[in-house]
């Protein structure tokens, strides 16, 4: 019922690794391909961007986009891993998906990811903050 093979074969070697679950497809793509993948998912497949999650793991900073295909309830989740924890950088998908603007801004201030090509790369939640909070979601893990 949930057939991702077409999508997987279409993307070919752009998908570095994948993890298929009942209605969810988590797959890893390279930074250079994310815009193309996002464009395909959003424009061709008609997916809606639910949100994106940035996580700090041992491998580095991971950014996981959640594209929801509303017709069937499936989720396509492209993952980008940035191994450089000091200065993680990746391409922004905001030029393709307008709704990603706030989501990327928030990830940027919470985990310090720089989104290249973002039209408005300023903090969203902590703008004008009196205490000047920096990357709060990384603070306690980056010491170890």
């Amino acid at each position: 019922m949930h057939n991702y093979s077409e999508f997987i074969s279409l993307m070919g070697n752009k998908i570095l690794s994948k993890n298929e679950k009942q209605k969810r497809l988590y797959f890893e793509v390279g930074n250079e391909n994310i815009i193309e993948v996002a464009d395909y998912l959003f424009t061709k497949l008609g997916c809606r961007l639910s949100t994106a999650t940035a996580t700090e793991t041992y491998r580095g900073i991971e950014v996981l986009y959640h594209f929801s295909l509303d017709k069937s309830g499936e989720y396509y989740c492209p993952r980008i891993v940035m191994t450089d924890k000091k200065n993680p950088r990746m391409n922004s998908i905001t030029p393709v998906v307008r709704g990603a603007e706030w989501i990327e801004r928030e990830m940027s201030e919470m985990l310090g990811v720089t989104f290249e090509g973002h039209p408005r790369p300023e903090p969203l939640l902590t703008g004008n903050h009196p205490q000047n909070i920096k990357v709060p979601l990384r603070k306690w893990r980056s010491n170890g």
Binding site: N128, H129, Q131
Partner: peptide
Amino acid sequence: SGVINQKVAP
């Protein structure tokens, strides 16, 4: 109402 956060405190 609410716990006062640092941004809203001033």
